[in-house]
Amino acid sequence: MDLENKNKDHKSKLGNFKLPKLPIKLPKPPPPPTHLGDVELPKTLMYLLPVGGLFTLAFVGAIAAFVITAWWGQPIPVLGFEQTFDQPINFPHTVHASTKQLDYKDADGNTMMGLGTDCTFCHRTVNKTTAAGANAYIPPVNFCANCHGVIGTEDNSQLNILRDAAGIIGEDGTSPINWRRVHRLPDHVRFVHEPHIRYLSANPEHIKGETDGVSTGPSAVCSTCHGNVASMEKVYQVEPLKMRQCVDCHRDNEAPTDCATCHH
């Protein structure tokens, strides 16, 4: 989904915003005053004043709601708390990364084991030092097609989206797949995976979380921030990934907490 549509979504959400859903209980409006000091108020104004008050309250309430959801919500959606998206292809991390028994059945009808692929097999830039290593890049389509040109049944509709994009079937071999990003830090944060993986690999006692996937090498440390991705059918964000979390961890591990470490 592109940005415009996303914006529209939120706009519509805001349009539907109803007062009763507010987490703040509104106090009962006082009875309309009939006198303001000694001045007799016109009747219409008497009815308008409490309405105006209501509006003001609603307004403040809306802002409060906004602040609260923005502050406590995940960084991706501010209004609404959804934690995952439908991706263009339902990519199951379980099948690829897990080492456990799965509910899936393979083409021959046997129950599948997870493949137990190392995270860096696909997200191969993640433990590199340079700028490209800042993000766990999603691999190119034809990287996927290396296997899925052969693996997977021909009538697998999900895989056919991939094969189409890679030009194995269909005519058009040039359009990439627009994956939606799940873990996104604010724009003013420059996060680089590599030093974190390097440190946690050397200091495994600081790893948090567990993984169903490979527990050796760089894959072992991912769960600290990303949770048990190997057990996820659809990836969602587990940790809030707020600055406090970053700073706490940096302090615990005596990593620099200079602003310019992450913000530049």
Binding site: T130, A131, A134, R190, V192, H264
Partner: peptide, 28 residues
């Protein structure tokens, strides 16, 4: 440049001595 924040309206900016390059090279 993906290493540098895009500054939005209403904030100050100035030469950073290319801190992104300092950070990157130190990291390497």
């Amino acid at each position: 440049n993906p290493d540098v924040t895009i500054r939005s309206r209403g904030i100050m900016e100035k030469c950073s001595f290319c801190i992104q390059r300092i950070n990157r090279t130190s990291r390497e």
